[in-house]
Design a binder for these strands. Structure first.
Length: 265
DNA sequence: GCGATTTGACCGGT
DNA sequence: ACCGGTCAAATCGC
């Protein structure tokens, strides 16, 4: 495999990484008991997502947008409204809403047939043109889990690093233990948490979702006891680094340095 | 005062 | 017409 440029090399390796992660996920599902298999799937999803982000950062990859055009200031602009079910780039089931990116909440709705409201976030750097959004909803089966759907890619990185993640390096996957209360051990491993209390940072990041909300008029929920900020960013060591080093022989640092993510720990 | 969040209203796809 | 997604004014917290 002759790769002419570092960019091509990283893209090629990331693509290989995605394929390997998919394969790994299949193997885990086949070889593990159901619960372990689910953890494996979540980990696989996280690896794929990280690979996607690296690829997007390298290729400057704005996701294809197929929003309806509208007039704005006399200029034809694509509609900000997303067609239902369109552009979903990834759906992740996680024990925390924090994923290392910085998001700003812009809406909340209760959804037909669901006991839990759905929250809408866009990248905190949307003003700089980043079109990434996500939709967060508590899992119906397991209220301790969040189903997070990502739309679009983060394009706010520019050349000098991923602005979405400034001060907020990738968070490891939060894996839900199916018996309701939460995190399982290897999450702590990534958090360097030795104490028995689980994942304070993650809990704090959930806080603004509030207590059990009461429904109000048309599609609304009463306000939660929100914290002053919805910036959702936490620190951690991504399993991707282990994946890169273990499976691909590529050091996370080298990828990070190449991409200019100089402020990662 | 400023920036973030909340939430009623609106838009547009199905 | 219904419903999910987004907008934007009001509100809140620092």
């Amino acid at each position: 495999m002759a790769l002419s440029t570092p960019t091509a090399a990283v893209l090629e390796l990331m693509t290989m990484g995605q394929q390997s992660a998919l394969h790994l996920g299949e193997l885990l599902m086949a070889a593990s008991p159901p619960m372990e298999g689910e953890r494996g799937q979540a980990l696989t999803a996280e690896i794929l997502r990280c690979c996607d982000r690296v690829i997007a950062a390298i290729s400057g990859g704005a996701a294809g947008t197929k929003r309806k055009a509208t007039m704005e200031h006399g200029v034809l602009m694509p509609s900000k409204r997303r067609a239902r079910g369109a552009e979903l780039s990834r759906e992740v089931r996680s024990g925390t809403t924090a994923d290392g990116f910085m998001w700003r909440k812009y809406g909340q709705k209760d959804i037909n047939g669901s006991n839990h409201p759905r929250f809408y976030y866009r990248c905190a750097y949307s003003a700089e043109g980043c079109g990434a959004t996500r939709r967060v909803q508590q899992s119906h089966e397991d209220p301790a889990a969040f189903v997070i759907a990502y739309y679009g890619d983060h394009t706010c990185g520019g050349g000098a690093g991923d602005a979405c993640q400034r001060g907020a390096p990738p968070l490891p996957p939060a894996i839900i233990d199916s018996n309701a209360c939460g995190m399982v051990g290897f999450f702590d491993q990534y958090q360097n948490v030795e104490s028995p209390q689980p994942l304070l940072a993650a809990e704090q990041s959930w806080r603004h979702y509030g207590e059990a909300p009461g429904q109000t008029s048309r599609g609304r929920w009463s306000s939660s006891s929100s914290s002053s900020s919805s910036w959702e960013a936490e620190r951690g060591t991504s399993p991707v680094s282990e994946f890169l080093e273990g499976s691909l022989g590529v050091g996370w640092e080298s990828v990070v340095n190449y991409l200019g993510f100089t402020d990662l720990p």
